[in-house]
């Protein structure tokens, strides 16, 4: 493969679909990402303020299902793998390097604020929606879950609906 070039999207999608199928075949459930963020947040809060975790309902509900260290979870290990795999891909295709990517029409300051605020909304929404683009939308589509497919439509529909108002961030 030539450097800096991306894979054909249909081929990449086919490989991603096969990986998802293999994941379901081996583990009985699909891929995810926001679940690892949740584990990360819970582990952080638990190490700083364990007493607060013990009397906050969202955390106690989590620990009812996860007896062990929140970081010793399938999704946390999967996301560590994502970091390794993406880094390897970036290395092979010569795309490594620190960069604050932004549209030339916005300042770095605006890009930083939009990244924090967008992340905040996505993080919050992923908890409310019980999963993100990976765990709810993509994996939900693979198993034809009604909830997963509705979340998928809401994510993409919502993004399209709001895109006009934030066009100056990108174009």
């Amino acid at each position: 493969m030539k450097k800096n070039e991306y894979m054909n999207p249909y081929l990449a999608g086919f490989f991603l679909g096969l990986l998802l199928l293999v994941t379901i075949f081996i583990t009985g459930r699909g891929l995810g990402a926001s679940g690892a963020f949740k584990s990360g947040v819970i582990a952080t809060v638990n190490s700083i303020l364990p007493s607060h975790v013990a009397d906050t309902r969202y955390y106690t509900e989590f620990f009812e299902e996860h007896k062990e260290n929140p970081l010793k979870s399938w999704l946390v290990f999967e996301v560590i793998g994502v970091v390794i795999g993406a880094f390897a891909s970036g290395l092979i295709s010569n795309r490594l390097g620190f960069k604050l990517e932004r549209s030339p029409s916005v300042t770095s300051r605006i890009r930083i604020i939009s990244a924090i605020f967008g992340g905040l909304l996505f993080g919050f929404g992923s908890q409310l929606g019980r999963g993100c683009t990976s765990g709810a939308a993509l994996s939900g589509m693979a198993v034809m879950s009604t909830g997963g497919i509705i979340t998928m439509i809401a994510i993409f529909g919502g993004a399209y609906a709001f895109a006009y108002f934030f066009r100056k961030l990108w174009i």
Binding site: S114, A115, I116, F117, G118, G119, L120, L121, F122, G123, F124, G125, S126, Q127, L128, G129, R130, C132, T133, A136, I150, T151, M152, I153, A154, I155, F156, G157, G158, A159, Y160, A161, F162, A163, F166, L169, W170
Partner: peptide, 14 residues
């Protein structure tokens, strides 16, 4: 939840 994620997507880019 999905709509909030969609909003986060176009603001944050990821």
């Amino acid at each position: 939840g999905g709509i909030i994620m969609g909003l986060g997507f176009v603001i944050g880019g990821f």
